[in-house]
Design a protein around this nucleic acid. Structure first.
Lengths: 189, 189
DNA sequence: CTTGTCTATGCAACGAGTTGCATAGCAGGA
DNA sequence: TCCTGCTATGCAACTCGTTGCATAGACAAG
């Protein structure tokens, strides 16, 4: 299970509370691994119980205390072990592709709005990634010689950028196809 | 839940047994939605119980009977309803990206073999998709004017091709990065 | 002064997905 | 002959992931 390992990596990059992790999972890490706060709290509790993580209660003024988690030695070892194991190349779960094939049995033109909406989301994500890349890696405020960790984060971000660019281009292709067949051919049903 | 709908689409394209569906999910449909035979049998049983599918026992010589499922009217209606609902743009679950970021806390060079293995898998899938595209859509044996369903299947396949091409290129980028930082910089641990 | 939002954590229930195992006949190779 | 593998279906147990709800103090807007 990779959620454990995603949390370990994130805590090694920067210790933090469950709440903070949940927000990171909405941002950088979450681009490649999503998780809700419930999942995160449950996994943190389990990993702490198993001695992979250390907790420290941090009092805050005007707020409930937060539990700051950091990676203990056994957690680091568990991550290292996982890094040396092969993982399965992932398979996609692409609802929209199912819908596109399904549109043949309904009205293809009715899907245009939905595809446009997805295109917008991916286009926004792309802009967001590009802004992050400029801020952290390629812009004037970026650290001059990147260390290994930053190089790797940048490489992963380039993957996200390539993915979103590819997706936007593909959805444009799909839209053109839907408009082409929406005209001449009648819906199948 | 999209497994139901993926099954409906697949059965509309071609009725078949659970076993046949499981094999389709290893091929075309499975490129965008994976499922094991257990999942498929369970969902087929539920959908039949709910009247979305019709079953027909087909005797076979030298083999156990197979249950051929096809989509009943309520199933078609359920699919149509889903097609008109918005779905969430999916988020990735990319183990390898987690590993790449995690490599900063281990030996980056140790990840090269793993990344090469993934590159090979994606490169094979790409070749496989391209062969399928030539066979079904662009080659001399393809149907001359494609109908709407075929146009849409082709559009989805083009998405798979674009995805695999993008992934192979990105993994090359990652490999170059790993080799670059593997030399000068020492492992963090 | 009440309502809503943000930080911060968590329980309980459910549904989705995975893994291991079982059955059963037939075909082909060592 | 025995072992492996393929077609064909399914149960049981488990883990993973999602959804709804709850608590609780601080702060801002209406």
């Amino acid at each position: 299970m990779a959620l454990d390992h995603a949390i370990l990596v994130s805590l090694l990059e920067q210790p933090g509370s469950g709440y903070e992790l949940a927000r990171r999972f909405e941002r950088s890490i979450g681009y490649f691994w999503t998780a809700t706060h419930q999942q995160i709290y449950r996994v943190l509790a389990r990993m702490e119980r198993d001695g992979l993580l250390a907790v420290r209660a941090v009092p805050q003024q005007g707020r409930p205390d937060k539990k700051e988690y950091s990676v203990a030695a056994p957690g680091r070892a568990a991550l290292a072990r996982w890094l040396h194991e092969p993982v399965e190349p992932e398979s996609l779960r692409h609802d929209l592709a199912v819908k596109i094939r399904g549109a043949a049995f309904d009205d293809p033109a009715a899907l245009i709005g939905e595809v446009e909406r997805h295109r917008q989301v991916h286009s926004d994500r792309l802009a967001h990634y590009l802004a992050g890349e400029h801020r952290d890696f390629t812009g004037p405020d970026a650290p001059a010689p990147l260390d290994a960790g930053q190089e790797l984060q940048h490489a992963v971000l380039r993957g996200g950028i390539a993915y979103e660019r590819m997706t936007v281009a593909w959805l444009d292709d799909v839209l053109a196809t839907l408009r082409r067949i929406g005209g001449p051919s009648a819906p199948d049903a």
